[in-house]
Every structure is written in structure tokens, then in C-alpha cells.
Design a protein around this nucleic acid. Structure first.
Ligand code: MN
Ligand code: MN
Ligand code: ZN
Ligand code: ZN
Lengths: 149, 149
DNA sequence: TATAATAATGATAATGATTATCATTATTAT
DNA sequence: ATAATAATGATAATCATTATCATTATTATA
């Protein structure tokens, strides 16, 4: 996963939020900063830890809800039942996740585009066969991460 | 998805449970029956509805926990943040899920084996590239189901 | 069979994550 | 400067899930 510069994110996010009378406050910026720096989605608890004392939980959850509303962030489920947050794909790019079943961490991973297009075509095909209007796919790879080996 | 006969399930499950001093009681059988009949994983709430009045929630959750322990059922996350339960793959076979983002239902879908092997090889490859010991993959296809079209 | 040991049940309380309230404070618009 | 609007933070409320524990059912064994 290529880690892009945070300033570009702030600019893009400011633009999108201002369209919708939504303010890009310090608390919300803090969330975006943390998510930008992470190489995987973070849970509310993890985000709270990164800003211990500085952001009350109620505000954190509200920021997350609002950022999701504005499509700045998305939620990821699938590792245990833990909800994790990450920057939306229009910021971070399409990617998938390596989920360590031992320590529970979730790491972003981009597939080579040839693989990605394979998946895309098979998803289309399966949708047709099942008369299901496929919109997008979520591929989580479960296993043991390097640190847990 | 091929719907196999429930009696075979009961036999196999009885065998596996008896190995571990775990009883296959009516409540547990009821859960297995419901899951067998369903064409997708069910949430605890949905299971409770299917047996309104007959199974107290505490018993239901305990049955689910015990059946999961004994690897009779597995949990599926990923549709909203809802935890859903399904029969383990050694009973139901490996498959994936069509998740309707409109009504929230989750339907089982088996991929043609050529697709499945494509996924398998790409997962292996990605694991190598990321020095991640890949064990299995979870592919959810999100979109709009037939009823919601 | 009678009895002890073990497991399951069901009512209820406790927990933990998330959401809702609401008064206060900060920002924006006029 | 003032009014309108949005954000904050403390707190309470919800909701799913888990833990307790006394009671009941099942199994083992004398
Ligand atoms: Mn991610
Ligand atoms: Mn399934
Ligand atoms: Zn790990
Ligand atoms: Zn639907």
C-alpha cells in the first residue's frame, strides 16, 4: 500500500465537507490524521487510544458517524465482530485486507491489477448467474501475520 | 447452493459432539435445523424469531457459543455489523456470500470451481508477497438482491 | 435401581459498544 | 453586533452479548 500525503487528503476532504455545510474541526481532522497514518483500518477503541484524554468518546463516535455520512470514511467489519474505520476508497484507493486470526490486526493490501480484474470479472459473472446486481466486492485474506509467526 | 439432507447433518453432528462430552439437545438441534433450512447465514435475532417463545435468548446464545466451540457452526460478519451464524464448511461446503446492501439479507453462493481456484492462487501469491501466512479467504459480493431491484 | 457426578436450562443481572439528549460553546451569516 | 446554525462534552439510554446461579435433566457407577 502506497502511503499518500496527508495534506492532499485534508484539501480534498475540506472541499467535500464544505459543500455540505459540515465543518472540518480539529477532532475530525485528528481522526483523519490517524487513519491516514495507519496501514489498516482502526477500531473506535484504537482511535480513542491514539488520542487519550483529548477526544471524548461521544465526540469521537459522532465524528466517525459524520465522516461516514459524508463518505470520507467507511466501515470495515469481518475481523471478529470488530468495527473498524478507514478512509474511503476515493482517497485510499481500492484494496483488500490481511486479517491476522491470531492478534486480530488488519492490514491493507493492494492486489496486482491483473488479480483485481480477475476478481472483477468473476464477480460480474456470479452476479449474472444469481440475478444479483453486484456493486462491489470485499476480499479478506485470513491467516497469520509476520509478527505472530 | 445445493441443499443437503438434514438427517446426514444430525448424524455427523451427533458424532462430533459425542466425542466431546457435549450433548445434542433439542435447543441445539433446533438451531441446526434452522441453519440447515436457510440459504444464508442467520443472525441471533433471526434465529430467535424462528423459534419465538420456545428458546430463551440466553439459551440460544449459549447454544450458538457451544456449537461454534465444537466447530459445528461459524460466524460471519461483514453485512453491516451484524453477526450471523451458519453451518461450518465441513458440513455446508466452501462458499461465498451475496450481501444485499438494501435489505441486508445474506445469501450463500458457490463459485464455479475455476473461479474458486483463481481466487485460491491469487490469495497464495498475495500472501507470499506480503509475508503473510494465508489460511483462507472471505469473499463477499455486495449489491442489490432480486427482491430489492 | 438408587445415587452421585456432570451438563444443560432459564431467569436475571452485568457488561460493553454504540447512540441519543441536551445544555453549553464555537462558528458562520446577516 | 446579533441571530442562526453547528459542534462539543457530559451524561443517560439502548441493544447485543455474556456472566451468574439456582433448578432441572442426563449420564455414570455402585
Ligand atoms: Mn483498508
Ligand atoms: Mn454462508
Ligand atoms: Zn498477528
Ligand atoms: Zn435485498
Amino acid at each position: 500500500m502506497n502511503k499518500p500525503d496527508i495534506d492532499a487528503f485534508h484539501t480534498a476532504i475540506t472541499a467535500r465537507l464544505s459543500c455540505r455545510k459540515v465543518r472540518y474541526t480539529l477532532g475530525r481532522k485528528a481522526v483523519v490524521e490517524s487513519l491516514s497514518k495507519s496501514n489498516g483500518p482502526l477500531s473506535a477503541a484504537e482511535l480513542a487510544d491514539l488520542h487519550t484524554g483529548t477526544i471524548p468518546l461521544s465526540s469521537l463516535y459522532r465524528s466517525l458517524a459524520i465522516l461516514e455520512d459524508s463518505e470520507i470514511i467507511t466501515r470495515h467489519f469481518g475481523a471478529n465482530g470488530v468495527t473498524r474505520y478507514e478512509l474511503a476508497e476515493w482517497l485510499l484507493g481500492h484494496h483488500h485486507h490481511l486479517v491476522c486470526t491470531s492478534c486480530g490486526t488488519v492490514e491493507d493490501v493492494s492486489l496486482p491489477s491483473s488479480y483485481e480484474s480477475q476478481i472483477h470479472t468473476l464477480v460480474e459473472e456470479v452476479g449474472k448467474l444469481s440475478s444479483f446486481q453486484a456493486k462491489n466486492h470485499i476480499l479478506d485474506i485470513e491467516g497469520i501475520c509476520l509478527r505472530c509467526t
